[in-house]
Design a protein around this nucleic acid. Structure first.
Length: 849
RNA sequence: GCCCCGGUAGCCCAACGGCAGAGGCAGUGGUCUCAAACACCAUCCAGUGUGAGUUCGAAUCUCACCCGGGGCACCA
């Protein structure tokens, strides 16, 4: 592309009469940017929406973290997102399309330590860079709503919301074993530890520490967070709904209470209450307090030795499922509430302290883990479900009739024998409820969200700890609690928050009793900042409230959210939690923040993720330089469906640039004047145009943006042919009004993806800027009707002939025509026609023989 | 192990249960050119992962399996 520029002048000179053969992407970009700034066509008008003058659409894309300049991934999501935002404007919606920066976070802090500076230097420097790039990228954003989560004006409200949630009992402090990242020197939420036990952010192996930390009570909404996934099933991309379901991990079952000798009873959670007859022992988590309370003096030494050994093992080892079961007997017995049998109680590490009640009834006949444990320690095994005859495994957890429930000769008031698993579960729960020894219940895997962090560059937790009054919230009129000025070496992680070193900042008078007190020195997880930013966009400059509930009512919820899969559980779950909490605080009326969610695939190169070590990185800046903004955007949108990965090695920005030139050239060929009566234009081309618009509407609305681009290409090809071909070959020449109509539609459609080229075309077509304000074409339904359609005649389902028929042909006529056709008669070859299926006007299928 | 999603031409991808091909990339042949690039025209290429089933008819629906991607996982 660049090489062209030195020849450009020759081309211009040579083609003065026919117009230039190509345009220069760079100069077109420079030409239109200031014009758009002047026209400001993307400002979202609150008044219009509040008054209900226009229907609204809220388009949201995950705001970037300011690390360096934008990369290919950003380019993709912004390009996809802009298609829908621009389309909605064309369709008459008042569109809110805001942008900001998720600007708290560790990279800035680490850079500050490295370079002996303040994190703000890195942060705001990168924001400036990214802002310039985004402007050039031509996204249709309302920049007046720009926000940065690290601005005190923003995090004041993050702090306010923290206090609001605390008032609702949704933020609390507790001491517990927590995930600790030794690399980042801070605690992490469960969601931020990957399945392999490493830190989601930096990849270091996460360890455990016992610490007092702040939590959001996400579990209070576990049921609702799970249930409302049903409503999102169709409008969210399936894999994200699935990931959230798995993460929340709902399981139905029962609590069963077992009396214990000389001790409080133990309650366990089980999904298989029907197997209670097969319980031959009890197991409690070795690291739970319960184990320590239960163990007898006689067994204490052995227990403690076992426990210490387990504590030394890493989580990675503990999580391995293939090692032999271990445990120690605690010296006490429980009583089976149904049979009265006495059951030994053991401690083990295969039971988790923080799931369910930290204790389990051991049913070796029905649970493989219990089977292994029983085998290891010589405990009895009783089957309570009859396995199929060919069953060869050990524990049997499948369907089948209940047996040994109770065992022959036992009378206990409950008989499950012969019942199916479901029937037996229900009967057992009813029986337990009668006995007062249990009840049906639902358990969740989801844990509370650990939100405090021992790092500097985040929103300080607005709590003051007073020896006399305890936790005291910072009064609202004293918000924000601004970060003290720390820089460079002051920020070095040392296992506790750097804020602790800012003595003057930390030591304050208690707001309640005025006695000596200390500020909380932890900052909030940056996922807190991003859990509500889409509300702040509604009132970005409001200094009196986080957001205006009336505007939330008018604009919310977000109509389409586009972002990366890496946030499938993290950010999306947190934002859903915040929305429900804010609803219950009376600030919102709706339940879910994002009506539709689309995830964008990754941009990879040569089949591998781009990385410095592989040396396969593709620089967005270089691509833009080489091909222009529009060609890069078009490449990214056209390459594949939005959610699929794009391999840069498989795509062709050169091809995209060629197409743009082809499209643009049309606008120079049109010779009719703006406003010409298109109804007199060439019918064949008009039909293609109408069909394209109708299809494009459906395709954009179902987010199949790559197919929309293919349709644009077809329309460009058809228009080119109409201009160039003589009448006898179906052409109509450049003066035909249909050519203008088609080219204007190309400009409008193209503006969804390639705004500069489209704007340039629009101008050459004799219109004032901006094409974004152009009137979307109204499709005349008459133009969508085909004059003649090709009906296929199948014999035994195989196509044997084609007939040109009228689109409104009757079934009888079509059948007659098919049977009269010579090719058909030949293909039937004298056989009997046994059955005729007619789908007028497209198909006839003959069954012969 | 459980749960989602996918598998169509050399490649990226289209196809209301009804003609497997819309579009693009790459390839091939041509027009233009002194030559090349650009542009334009033409053209080659698969029977839809495998096996059954439903149906007049299956890429599409059902089941099983194979392969790839993702989520959860000693979660009772």
């Amino acid at each position: 592309m660049r090489e062209q520029s030195h020849e450009h002048t020759d081309v211009d000179r040579a083609s003065e009469e026919t117009g230039p053969a190509s345009y220069d992407a760079r100069s077109v970009e420079e030409k239109w940017l200031p014009v758009w700034d002047e026209l400001d066509p993307f400002r979202a008008d609150d008044a219009v929406v509040l008054a209900g003058q226009k229907p609204k659409r809220y388009a949201l894309t995950m705001f970037p973290y300011p690390s360096g300049d934008l990369h290919m991934g950003h380019a993709e999501v912004f390009a996809l997102h802009d298609v829908i935002a621009r389309y909605w404007r064309f369709r008459g919606y008042e569109v809110l399309n805001p942008m900001g920066w998720d600007s708290f976070g560790l990279p800035a802090e680490n850079a500050a330590i490295r370079n002996d500076e303040h994190p703000a230097t890195y942060t705001y420097g990168n924001i400036d860079t990214q802002y310039s790039s985004m402007k050039r990228y031509g996204v249709s954003v309302d920049w007046s709503r720009r926000l940065h989560t690290s601005d005190p004006e923003y995090y004041k409200w993050t702090q306010w919301l923290f206090l609001k949630l605390r008032e609702q009992g949704l933020a609390y402090r507790k001491n517990s074993p927590v995930n600790w990242c030794p690399q980042d020197q801070t605690v992490l939420a469960n969601e931020q530890v990957l399945a392999d036990g490493t830190c989601e952010r930096c990849g270091a192996e996460v360890t455990k520490r016992e610490l007092t930390q702040w939590y959001f009570r996400t579990t209070a909404y576990a049921q609702e967070l799970y249930d409302s996934l049903d409503d999102l099933q169709d409008s969210w991309i399936g894999k994200v709904v699935n990931a959230q379901r798995n993460w929340i991990g709902r399981s139905e079952g029962a609590h069963v209470t077992f009396e214990v000798d000389d001790h409080d009873p133990i309650t366990v959670f089980t999904t298989r209450p029907d197997t209670v007859f097969g319980t031959t022992f009890m197991v409690v988590a070795v690291d739970a307090k319960l184990a320590e309370e239960l163990v007898t003096e006689e067994h204490r030494e052995a227990f403690e030795a076992y426990r210490d050994e387990i504590r030394k093992a890493s989580d990675i080892d503990r999580l391995a499922t293939d090692r032999p079961k271990t445990g120690v007997f605690l010296g006490v017995h429980a009583t089976n509430p149904v049979t009265g049998e006495r059951l030994p109680i053991w401690a083990t590490d295969y039971v988790l302290a923080d799931y369910g009640t930290g204790a389990v009834m051991g049913v070796p006949g029905g649970d493989q883990r219990d089977w292994e444990f029983a085998t290891e320690f010589g405990l009895p095994i009783v089957r309570t479900t009859e396995p199929p005859a060919d069953f060869e495994g050990e524990a049997y957890a499948g369907e089948g009739p209940a047996i040994n429930s109770p065992a022959a000769g036992v009378e206990c008031g409950l008989d499950l024998n012969g019942l199916s698993v479901d029937e037996a579960k229900r009967a057992t729960i009813e029986h337990l409820e009668r006995l007062g020894s249990g009840s049906g219940t639902v358990n969740f895997r989801l844990r509370d969200w650990l939100l405090s962090r021992q790092r500097y560059w985040g929103a300080p937790i607005p709590i003051i700890h007073c020896q006399a009054c305890g936790e005291v919230p910072v009064p609202v009129d004293q918000l924000p609690v601004e970060l003290p000025e720390l820089r460079g070496a002051d920020l070095k992680p040392k296992g506790s928050s750097p804020l602790g070193a800012a003595t003057e900042w930390v030591e304050v008078a208690c707001p309640s009793c005025a006695g000596p007190a200390r500020r909380d020195t932890d900052t909030m997880d940056t996922f807190v900042d991003s859990s509500w930013y889409f509300f702040r966009y509604l009132s970005p400059n409001d200094s009196t409230q986080a957001f205006d509930p009336a505007l939330a009512q008018a604009w919310g919820p977000v109509d389409l959210y586009i972002g990366g899969d890496e946030h499938a559980v993290l950010h999306l779950l947190y934002a859903r939690f915040f929305t429900k909490a804010l609803r219950d605080a009376g600030l919102l009326t709706w339940d879910e923040p994002f009506s539709a969610y689309l995830s964008q695939g990754k941009v990879i190169n040569g089949g591998r993720k781009m990385s410095k070590s592989l040396g396969n990185g593709v620089s967005l800046g270089e691509q833009l330089e080489a091909f222009g903004v529009d060609a890069v955007r078009l490449t990214l949108v056209f390459a594949s469906p939005p959610e699929d990965n794009i391999d840069w090695a498989d795509v062709s920005p050169t091809g995209a640039a060629k197409f743009l030139q082809r499209a643009w050239r049309l606008s120079g060929d049109v010779t009719s004047q703006p406003g010409v009566d298109v109804t007199t234009g060439d019918l064949a081309l008009r039909k293609v145009t109408a069909r394209t618009v109708a299809d494009a509407e459906k395709l954009v609305e179902s987010y199949r943006f790559n197919v929309v681009v293919a349709r644009m290409m077809e329309l460009v090809n058809a228009t080119r042919k109409a201009i160039d071909n003589p009448a006898e070959k179906g052409g109509c020449g450049p003066a035909d009004p249909a050519v203008r109509e088609a080219t204007e539609v190309v400009a409008m459609l193209l503006s969804l993806v390639a705004p500069y080229t489209a704007e340039e075309m629009w101008e050459r077509l004799g219109h004032a800027p901006t094409v974004a304000h152009a009137a979307w074409p109204v499709v005349d339904p008459a133009l969508l009707v085909e004059d003649a359609v090709t009906a296929v005649v199948q014999i035994q389902g195989k196509v044997r002939a084609r007939l040109e028929v009228s689109p409104d042909i009757s079934a009888e006529d079509l059948e007659a025509a098919a049977l009269a056709d010579e090719t058909v008669i030949k293909a039937i070859d004298g056989r009997t026609v046994r059955k005729v299926i007619v789908r007028a006007p497209k198909l006839v299928n003959l069954v012969v023989g």
